[in-house]
Design a protein around this nucleic acid. Structure first.
Lengths: 331, 331
DNA sequence: TTGAAAGCGCTAACAT
DNA sequence: ATGTTAGCGCTTTCAA
C-alpha cells in the first residue's frame, strides 16, 4: 500500500502538504493541490486508519450498541441501524457494531479508543449501562429515555405521547374500552424504556378521558398474538385494540376475524410500528409510525455535534402522528 | 488515558515487557507478569487500538458487508449478523458494519486498513462486488454462492438441496403438484444467490420426480402473500405449498383458510426460514431451517483461519434438514 | 504558501 | 528473562 511519503515524493512536495491537501486544514495553491491529487489517484492512496487515529485522536468510527434481545421488533431495530449507518457515512464515519449485552464492549471500544462516539439502543428505565456510559470520554447518545438520564443525551419517539395519541384517536371515534396488545413479557420485564412509556401514556390518557384500558402483553409469533387478542376480545365492551408488537399484528387481525368480529365495524385496530408493516396488511392498518430511521439519524447528528462543539446534552423527542388506514372507524 | 509507558513505569519494567505480558508472545517470569498485571489493573490501562493497528498491522476488526436491500428477510439477516458478531468476539475481534450497497465501502475499509478481513452478505449470482473483493488484500468470505466464486471462499446453506428436499418431502407424502411462494420479485430480479439456487433445486427435483412445480414470487407483507397464494390455489390439483418468504407466511396460512381449505388435509405447507418463525405459527409449520447464526459463525471461522494460515479458499455448504410441524401430511 | 520534524502509542527485532 | 529502540503512517506545531 502506498503511504503518504510515496504520495509526497511522487508529487514532489512534503508530506505535510499532502496531509493538508487531504484535510483542507490550510490553504494550498491550486497547482500544488492538483499535483497532489494526481499522485493520490495514481497511487490509489488511502490514509491508514490506525495511523490517522493515532496522530489525530479521531477514528472516524461511531460505536453502535445494539443488543439483540428477545422480543424486540427486528424491523424496527434494522431501521434504527440503517438510519445510524447512513447518517454516519454522511459525516465520513463508519459504524462499529456491538451486539453483546454487557458493559465490557462499551469499555473496550471506548477506552481502547476504537470509536469517537457511542450510540446506545434498547435503553431500559434503569439501564445498568448508564454508570459506564457516564464515565466514557466519548460523546454518548441514548436511543430511548431512561428514568434518570443523568445528563446523557437522549433521542426517541415520544412513546408516552404515542400512548396518549392512540387513546385520543380511539376515544374521538367513540370507543370507550380499549385494549393494548403489548410487547412480549420479556420486554416488559426488563423495563424497556419505550414499552413502559407507551403504557404509561395510554393509561393516564385513558384515565383522563374516563375510558377503560386493558394491557395484555403478547409472546412473539402467531400464537402469542392470538392468545392476547382472545383475552382482549373477552373483555366486556371492548371495541378498540392498540398493537405495540409488530410480530403479533397479523395474528391479531386473524384472531379478530376468526372470532367473527369485523374490522373496523366491531373492533378498531391501531398499530404502533413501521409504516410498511402496517400498510401491507389486509386491510391496511391505521398506525402510529415509529420513524426509526429518522431517529437513528438524529442520534448521529447529536453525537457529531457534540464532537464538534462539546455542547451540553439534550433530549429530543419526536412527536407521534397517526397514519390512517382502514382499521379504525367511528363506533 | 494511561499508556503503555505509564504501565511500564508503574510496574518497574520496560515497555516491551508490558507488551509481551499482554500478548503472551514471549515467556515472562511469574513475578514480573504479576506486577505488570497489577499496574494494568490499577491504571485501567487499555492499549490504543490505532497505535496497535499501526505497529502490528492488525486491527482486530472484521468488516461485515450487509446491504439492507428490499425484500430480504430481516429476521434472517439479523441472525447472520448475530452469528458473525458473536463468533468474531470469541476471536477477540469486533465488527464494522457496512450497509451501503456499493463497492466504495469495501475499498475504503480495505485499503484504509480498517479491517483484518471481510464477510460479505446477500451475494448475487453475478455479484458486481466480486471484482473488487478479488483485489482486496484481506481475506474475504462470501455468505452465499455466486455463479463463479473466482476463488473466493463461500459459506451458505445448500439452497439447491433445500429446493430438492422440499420437493422430496412433499412427493413422499403423495403430493404431485407443488407451489412455491417465493421471495419478492425484487430479490429475484437482482438474481440473489439463495433465491435462484432454491428454485433451481426445486424445479430439477420436480422434473426428476415427474411432478409439477409452480413458482410464484410474493411481494412483502400480507397482501403479497395473499395474492401469491391465491394464484397457487387456483392451480389445478395443487396440494402442497413451499414458502420461501418469511414475511408472507402468516398471509399464506390465512389465505388458505379463507379459501375454505384445510391445512394440512387439503393443502400442505412447508416453509424455509428460521425455526422460531415457523414454530410460532398456528399450527406450527413444517420447515427447512436456515441456520443463519451458525452460518455467520462459520464465515468468521473461515476468515480467521485464513488470517492465521493463508490456507486456500474453500466453499462450505450446510445440508438442509426438515423440522416437522403440523402442516404437512400424507395426501 | 510550503517544509521539517516531533510526536501519537504501540510491536517486534535486536541486544544483553 | 528482560531491556533498548527503530519503526508503523499519519497530524500538526514550529519555521521559513
Amino acid at each position: 500500500m502506498a503511504t503518504i511519503d510515496d504520495v509526497a515524493r511522487s508529487a514532489g512536495v512534503s508530506v505535510s502538504t499532502v496531509s493538508y491537501v487531504l484535510s483542507g486544514k490550510r490553504p494550498i495553491s491550486e497547482p500544488t493541490r492538483e499535483r497532489v491529487r494526481k499522485a493520490v489517484a495514481e497511487l490509489g492512496y488511502r490514509p491508514h486508519a490506525g495511523a490517522r487515529a493515532l496522530a489525530s485522536s479521531r477514528t472516524q468510527v461511531i460505536g453502535l450498541v445494539a443488543p439483540l434481545r428477545a422480543g424486540v421488533d427486528v424491523n424496527v431495530i434494522m431501521q434504527f441501524v440503517a438510519g445510524v449507518v447512513t447518517r454516519a457515512r454522511s459525516f465520513e464515519h463508519d459504524v462499529l457494531l456491538l451486539t453483546q449485552d454487557d458493559v465490557a464492549g462499551i469499555e473496550r471500544v471506548s477506552s481502547g479508543s476504537m470509536v469517537d462516539a457511542l450510540v446506545v439502543m434498547d435503553v431500559e428505565a434503569q439501564d445498568p449501562r448508564i454508570t459506564t456510559l457516564l464515565a466514557v470520554k466519548q460523546p454518548v447518545v441514548l436511543i430511548g429515555l431512561p428514568a434518570r438520564p443523568h445528563g446523557l443525551s437522549c433521542v426517541d419517539l415520544d412513546f408516552e405521547a404515542v400512548g396518549r395519541l392512540a387513546v385520543t384517536h380511539l376515544v374521538e371515534l367513540g370507543h370507550r374500552t380499549i385494549g393494548l396488545v403489548g410487547p412480549p413479557p420479556s420486554v416488559l420485564a426488563r423495563h424497556t424504556s419505550y414499552a413502559e412509556r407507551l403504557i404509561r401514556g395510554l393509561q393516564s390518557q385513558a384515565e383522563e378521558d374516563g375510558v377503560h384500558a386493558v394491557v395484555e402483553p403478547a409472546e412473539p409469533g402467531h400464537r402469542g398474538g392470538q392468545a392476547a387478542t382472545e383475552v382482549l376480545l373477552a373483555v366486556d365492551g371492548l371495541t378498540g385494540i392498540v398493537v405495540h408488537n409488530e410480530a403479533a399484528l397479523p395474528a391479531v387481525l386473524d384472531t379478530i376475524r376468526q372470532a367473527g368480529r369485523r374490522v373496523p365495524e366491531d373492533v378498531a385496530v391501531l398499530t404502533v410500528g413501521p409504516p410498511e408493516v402496517a400498510l401491507s396488511q389486509t386491510p391496511p392498518v391505521t398506525s402510529i409510525d415509529i420513524p426509526a430511521q429518522e431517529i437513528g439519524g438524529a442520534a448521529v447528528d447529536m453525537v457529531i455535534e457534540r464532537l464538534a462543539s462539546a455542547g451540553s446534552p439534550q433530549t429530543r423527542l419526536f412527536s407521534p402522528r397517526v397514519t390512517l388506514g382502514e382499521t379504525t372507524a367511528r363506533h
